[in-house]
Simulated scan of single mutants.
Amino acid sequence: MLWSVVLLMMDPVRAKEEPVERTVLEAVHVVAAPIIEANPVDAFAAQKTLLTQEQMEDLNAHDLQTALRRTPGVTISRYNPVGSFGGATGGAIFIRGLGSSRPGAEIKTFFDGIPVYMSIWNHPLLDLLPIDPAQTVEVYKSPQRHLFGNAFGVVNLVPKTAPQEGFEATLRAAYGSYGTLLVRGENGGSEAPWSYVVSGAYQRSDGHRDNADGALGNLYGRVGWHLNPHWKVYALTLWNDNYADDLEAKGVSPNRRQGRYETRLWLFSAAMTNECEKASGFFKIYRSGGEGDWLDQPSSTARVREDLFNDFLFYGFKARERFALWPGGEIVTGLDWDRTKGTTRLSSPMGRKMYGTGMISPCFRHT
């Protein structure tokens, strides 16, 4: 024990007599764009991942799956080069393993904070969410009820806005393997106090195998009015019409092919926003409705094909206001009123029919 104490007392002296030589590395400057834009954390310790238009262009993304395929914590699945067959493995996203349950409510999808998913089965249909009109994609990987309510994970598309001043227009076209065609057009402008954006896109592909074809088409429009430097109003609309065929697994009888999945959406929203020194927020009304139809699917009898028609509808209003009353502090208030309903109908040549309706009315959520 005595010798240990002596050695410990000698160590500091030895360190002073023999200075350690340090090597300083040259600075490394990273100039390439990251695979994501950022992982910001808000005042309530809620984190989200941001993917901007720049990253989507660098990834040569043409839909939501290809845009998120390199986002940490997100995995994707798909069958076809263009189009998502339903909302399961044929075209889906999974956030930290969540998103595989059916019927599922683990992951919710939004466009400008407006719900866009199949209300009957309560899971996303990714073809309803085109990235062409999206300026930013937000991915929330954990429950954040003060923002979106009942969901373990959320993907929200932030729509494009007009340029700060002047006018601009773009037109892009691409053609590739398997007869794949992509056309996108956009025009936007600002002239005080008005601003506008209109865009449209169409893409199709014959697919890499038989019955792997699909097509996506969408139109988007937004008009805004600056009442004054602090208050703005805007209205936007999104329409799309899509389909994807099932290519069936290799070695499986063609009679077991799952047919075609068609999706359609028409969304409308109007909002008033404010941005002041001590307060900011919005009031928004919306309507989001569409279809997710599974056509020509096999029945219990292999030679008989059936059609399943599903309709969904969301409408209501959302209000939110944030107050920054003291440095480092924030108070958030809000009120959501959402109404959800949908119908499902099975049509079969065998005479077997199924009808169903579902409705939640009203649904309140306050913050």
Score class of each variant (00 low, 15 high):
residue 352 R to T: 06
residue 232 K to I: 01
residue 297 Q to S: 05
residue 320 R to M: 02
residue 345 R to E: 10
residue 342 G to I: 02
residue 353 K to T: 15
residue 317 F to I: 07
residue 77 S to E: 05
residue 109 T to K: 09
residue 168 E to P: 15
residue 330 E to R: 08
residue 30 V to A: 10
residue 302 A to L: 12
residue 98 L to F: 13
residue 17 E to S: 10
residue 73 G to I: 03
residue 18 E to L: 14
residue 137 V to F: 03
residue 283 F to A: 12
residue 69 R to V: 11
residue 225 W to Q: 02
residue 8 L to H: 13
residue 321 E to I: 01
residue 262 E to S: 08
residue 74 V to G: 00
residue 305 R to G: 00
residue 184 R to P: 06
residue 40 P to T: 02
residue 180 T to R: 10
residue 283 F to G: 12
residue 306 E to V: 14
residue 356 G to K: 04
residue 313 L to S: 07
residue 95 I to C: 09
residue 1 M to T: 13
residue 12 P to G: 02
residue 240 N to A: 05
residue 316 G to R: 05
residue 162 A to H: 07
residue 93 I to W: 08
residue 25 L to P: 07
residue 209 R to F: 07
residue 206 D to I: 00
residue 81 P to I: 03
residue 200 G to I: 01
residue 97 G to M: 01
residue 252 V to S: 04
residue 213 D to Q: 11
residue 364 F to R: 08
residue 366 H to K: 09
residue 76 I to Q: 10
residue 106 E to H: 12
residue 20 V to N: 11
residue 358 G to V: 13
residue 213 D to T: 01
residue 123 H to Y: 15
residue 276 C to M: 08
residue 67 A to N: 11
residue 145 R to H: 13
residue 92 A to T: 02
residue 83 G to V: 02
residue 146 H to Q: 13
residue 188 G to T: 04
residue 318 K to P: 04
residue 112 D to F: 03
residue 95 I to A: 11
residue 295 L to I: 01
residue 244 A to H: 05
residue 76 I to E: 04
residue 142 S to G: 09
residue 206 D to V: 00
residue 120 I to N: 13
residue 341 K to G: 15
residue 78 R to D: 02
residue 258 Q to N: 08
residue 222 R to W: 00
residue 89 T to Y: 15
residue 284 K to C: 01
residue 47 Q to L: 03
residue 233 V to H: 02
